[in-house]
Design a protein around this nucleic acid. Structure first.
Lengths: 129, 129
DNA sequence: ATTGACCTTACCCTACGGGTAAAGGTTAAA
DNA sequence: TTTAACCTTTACCCGTAGGGTAAGGTCAAT
């Protein structure tokens, strides 16, 4: 009979997030006590743990949903899981490269900038062009 | 007398974005013709160009706003600009590191996964724990 | 006169909750 | 018994940076 705040503490999620996941149908509907308070049986805590893990691994809620469904599907093939992971890897690699590019040009501009009281600034100049 | 679609083409922004920037007060209010169509004088096109450049450099609209204000401030000190750039650099470095961590663990998990018809999958196992 | 391309406002949608309100429940101590 | 402290509920608005779409006004050419 764990309450939502206890579930939050146990899983590392916020109360807000837990209710949000319920609202979008990501997790099963928790039973309610007489006073309408949600409570969370084992199975639900496990779902929440799972979601937290996938989130920590960089997946968004849509991907977390797919992974959760796969995790609960005894007939799944590991190929399907691997596919999702590989997509995320590709995405991460692309994003990282982009950001490294940005970082590089930003660093270069910043090094050229005096950073003093003068108004002249190569960073601004680069954006005005 | 360039129209909004012409302004969009000239700057590489979307029409939607241009109207959005106006709505949030990021750029000056464009004058309207008799039929209420917006049109964009030189000065506005320059602002839009500037915003596009800062966006491309990885800044968000709040930061773009600050940079645009600095760019139009003759009394600015380049130190203020450099400060914003340095913050962004720190942020980018942090994000890149995080994502590299995620990428690493995801790659490791994925390599352990057979990716066949079997259900057993170390990726799922990692999330269940 | 009609078509197609353009413009307008207005509304809903995204992801992931944070913040807050207003209302009510539970528990333990004074 | 009351009170305080803490818990829960629903419900709304806020942020990012616009995308999508509807419904309608305008313009130039056919």
């Amino acid at each position: 009979m764990v309450s939502i705040s206890q579930a939050a503490k146990m899983t590392g999620l916020s109360i807000k997030s837990i209710r949000h996941y319920e609202q979008i149908g990501l997790i099963s509907t928790p039973p309610r006590s007489e006073n309408e308070y949600r409570y969370y049986p084992e199975a639900l805590i496990k779902q929440l743990h799972f979601i937290k893990s996938t989130k920590d691994a960089g997946f968004n809620l849509k991907e977390s949903r797919a992974l959760l469904e796969l995790s609960e599907d005894n007939m799944r093939s590991s190929a399907d899981v691997k596919h999702i992971a590989l997509q995320k890897i590709t995405e991460l690699e692309k994003r990282i490269k982009q950001q490294q590019q940005l970082l590089k040009s930003l660093k270069s501009l910043t090094q050229q900038c005096q950073g003093d009281k003068q108004a002249s600034c190569p960073i601004i100049d680069a954006f005005v062009k």
